[in-house]
């Protein structure tokens, strides 16, 4: 009996991610959600520019590689012309919260019936460790070599908090993949974000706190600790918006 296998929606190819990077876990969770819901046949994934730029090679559904930050606009074009597809974007913090802020905010404002998987690891990974819009105060990066100074570089953006103010957002939750318990919870959240789209509820965004050992200059274990000790207090886990929960409250 097989007790552990590759999800069918995940391609049988080696991933290019660095050792200790949590992208691989999140890819698996997305693929599992697609499998569980049985929608790989009608799913179109939008890959970003950033470390997950090759995501188009890793999923067994149709894939489009978007320009930096434009994934929500490309996804809008796909979904609006093909409402029966299941469309997700997979974006990092520079892609979603810096160069693509307008596309993100307005896809949410319009309530596009999409699923956004947002990887927040506080850094630009692919280009080699530059400051991200989500980099922590005091965080040393190659473009904030003396530590992020709020007076100079401003404060990190809390994406779920910001987007949850928009009426078009059905579901916004921040999760983490730093430990098995949180990974299991993240899977539930991601699956719900896809289910919401199938149920035509509007936009769901799952922000996943992730690690970048290579660019943080830490070991994988140290990275997980940094995520828990530094990121989580600034980026609290939890549901920031859930239109279903609201209905239950009434």
């Amino acid at each position: 009996m097989v007790v552990f296998d590759r999800p069918k929606a995940l391609s049988d190819v080696p991933l290019h991610y660095c050792p200790g990077c949590t992208h691989g876990i999140v890819h698996r969770l997305v693929a599992e959600a697609i499998d569980d819901l049985g929608v790989v046949d009608k799913t179109v994934g939008i890959a970003p520019v950033g470390c997950s730029v090759f995501a188009y090679n890793y999923f067994e559904c149709d894939m489009i590689e978007a320009a930096h930050g434009r994934a929500p606009a490309v996804a809008t074009g796909v979904k609006r012309t093909n409402p029966d597809t299941v469309v997700f974007t997979y974006q990092g913090d520079g892609d979603l919260a810096a160069i693509g802020t307008a596309e993100t905010v307005h896809a949410c404002a319009r309530g596009e019936n999409l699923t956004i998987i947002f990887i927040n690891n506080c850094i630009y990974g692919m280009t080699g460790g530059q400051m991200a819009p989500t980099s922590m105060p005091g965080q040393v990066t190659t473009t904030s070599p003396y530590g992020r100074d709020r007076k100079i570089q401003g404060s990190p953006i809390r994406v779920c908090e910001m987007l949850s103010t928009l009426d078009g957002v059905a579901y916004a939750e921040r999760v983490s993949v730093d430990c098995p318990k949180n990974v299991l919870h993240a899977k539930k959240a991601i699956k719900k974000a896809f289910q919401n789209q199938i149920d035509k509820k509007g936009l769901s965004i799952i922000e996943v706190l992730s690690t970048c050992p290579s660019n943080w200059g830490k070991s994988p274990i140290e990275s997980l600790e940094w995520l828990r000790n530094e990121m989580m207090p600034y980026y609290p886990l939890g549901v920031y918006k859930d239109i279903d929960a609201k209905e239950e409250d009434k």
């Binding site: 490309v74 074009g77 012309t81 093909n82």
Partner: peptide, 22 residues
């Protein structure tokens, strides 16, 4: 059909890209 006013010219052309890809 649909005529969608995008948030910017940049978003509009990328919506076109998504639609064209289908």
């Amino acid at each position: 059909g649909l005529c969608l006013q995008a948030e910017s010219e940049i978003a509009a052309i990328n919506m076109v890209m998504g639609a064209a890809a289908t």
